[in-house]
């Protein structure tokens, strides 16, 4: 500004005066501009790369959600090996009950069948979860009051869980159709 001073003559003097009287406002504007620029730079540096890839979110989050480990292998994987059980289940009412509904999460077993073996199940507890009588259960569903029905005796004493109907066992040999 020093060198431009002499070049500007009388008319500019008033202009200079105006400038001087709003100098503090210009300084304030400069402070705000610096803040704004700092924000824009920071924003560009900090916002995750994949943000906005599919929408207003971090696109990489989708793949991260999909990377969660699996606990339940799924019955098709079980059936690949345990073909004998598949055949057995086909003969009974539990044909539609998926393996891990009773046996629990067994992805680790599917991955390494030799070293990870499923625990033995307690049928007295397990069967009651579904078959204990409850008025809210649909009428078509087979239900018993276990206390009256078995008096605490484990269900698999009489029933074979993969093919639960008792008369099935007697008639299976004589070529029952269903």
């Amino acid at each position: 500004m020093r060198f431009s001073g002499p070049a500007i003559q009388t008319p500019a003097h008033g202009k200079n005066h105006v400038f001087k009287d709003i100098e503090h406002l210009i300084r304030l504007a400069a402070v705000m501009a610096i803040g704004l620029i700092a924000f824009i730079v920071l924003r560009a540096a900090v916002v995750p790369r994949s943000f906005g890839q599919y929408g207003h979110y971090r696109g990489a989050a989708i793949a991260e959600a999909a990377a969660h480990p699996i606990s339940y292998a799924g019955h098709t994987v079980c059936e690949g090996c345990h073909t004998d059980v598949v055949e057995q289940k086909k003969l009974g009412k539990h044909v539609g009950v998926p393996c891990e509904a009773c046996h629990g999460p067994l992805a680790k077993h599917a991955d390494d069948p030799a070293s990870v073996t499923p625990p033995k199940l307690d049928t007295a507890v397990l069967c009651a979860r579904c078959h204990e009588a409850n008025s809210a259960k649909p009428k078509w569903f087979p239900q018993v009051v276990t206390a009256d029905h078995s008096g605490g005796v484990a269900c698999d004493t009489c029933h074979q869980p993969h093919k639960p109907r008792i008369e099935d066992e007697k008639t299976a040999a004589s070529g029952r159709k269903n």
Binding site: I62, A65, A66, A67, H68, P69, I70, S71, Y72, G74, H75, G96, V97, P98, E100, A101, C102, P105, C130, F141
Partner: peptide, 23 residues
């Protein structure tokens, strides 16, 4: 609930559907 996103993107069903005994 993620609708078991890690399962359904790999051709499996959700854990809840997988174990539902009555469908």
């Amino acid at each position: 609930c993620t609708l078991c996103y890690h399962r359904i993107t790999k051709g499996l069903t959700t854990a809840c559907c997988e174990v539902c005994p009555t469908g």
